[in-house]
């Protein structure tokens, strides 16, 4: 059975939507092969459909604000009380706390040369982002969600949407995650998690870093440090730990002991999430 041009135009939509039976599909294709007018008609609809989808999904006027997904998460995500396994991570982390590097910036730079200088420069960058983004909101580039950043820049950021937990137990107190996003400071893209601990804003900033570059510094410090030590960055405290192919900084105006304990609580879950 052959189909007429009129029939074909009636079923062109269904054909392009994959909504006609296989045998009829063959007849349509047969007709199109021999009929340039109908082919042009079907191609025209195909172009229109593709144009519409492209236009609709690309137009910035229709884009959701970057906060919408986060707002929905905050609203819907169950807030878990302290699960036992979190405490377990903490103990496991304490056992390997030597992997966390914290030393005097100047002493480290002198002792370790170029790699250490880079580490110090990165820690300064983390502090800069904390000051500009978390504290003052002087943003050079609008933050985007971790989810979006994971599609475009770094797939590992997707795992930081839920890690660390919103409530982090630390010695009978809690640190609360108040914000998660991805932002840029001086050209470096971070996953930025803002926490509140003991009334202070603290930032956990995670950025990709090739493992080889920091290896020597981290290994050297690990051999002498038994616990997290605090790096002094131009008078401001910071801690840093390596996680998978990333460096993580914890910065904020906390007393050293509090910053150390917070880092210990964060490092285990973050390392686990990013290693997965």
């Amino acid at each position: 059975m052959t189909i007429s041009c009129r029939d074909l135009r009636e079923m062109a939509e269904a054909y392009l939507s994959g909504e006609i039976p296989a045998e009829m599909r063959e007849q349509v294709q047969e007709h199109l092969a021999g009929c340039p007018e109908c082919r042009a008609e079907v191609d025209g609809i195909r172009v229109l459909r593709a144009s519409l989808q492209r236009a609709f999904l690309a137009t910035p006027e229709l884009a959701a604000s970057t906060d919408l997904s986060e707002a929905i998460r905050r609203q819907l995500k169950p807030v878990a009380p302290v699960p036992r396994r979190v405490a377990a991570w903490r103990y496991r982390w304490l056992a390997t706390a030597a992997a966390v590097v914290v030393v005097s910036a100047t002493a480290l730079a002198t002792a370790m040369g170029v790699d250490a200088s880079r580490l110090v420069a990165l820690a300064r960058g983390a502090w800069g982002d904390h000051r500009n983004c978390a504290v003052a909101f002087h943003l050079g580039e609008r933050p985007i969600s971790l989810e979006e950043a994971s599609w475009i820049f770094d797939p590992a950021f997707a795992r930081l949407q839920t890690t660390p937990d919103t409530w982090i137990p630390i010695d009978g107190r809690y640190a609360l995650v108040t914000e998660r996003h991805s932002c840029v400071f001086e050209g470096r893209r971070y996953a930025h998690i803002v926490l509140k601990f003991r009334g202070e804003l603290v930032s956990l900033l995670i950025a990709p870093e090739e493992p080889s570059r920091m290896e020597t510094v981290i290994r050297a410090v690990t051999m002498t440090a038994q616990r997290v030590r605090v790096l002094n960055v131009d008078g401001a405290p910071a801690t840093v730990f390596r996680v998978s192919e990333h460096l993580a900084f914890v910065v904020g105006n906390l007393p050293e002991e509090d910053l150390r304990r917070l880092t210990e609580a964060l490092a285990g879950p973050v390392r686990l999430a990013l290693a997965g």
Partner: peptide, 10 residues
């Protein structure tokens, strides 16, 4: 479900 938020919003 969450990956569809932007398209749903559009």
């Amino acid at each position: 479900a969450m990956p569809h938020v932007d398209r749903l919003f559009r």
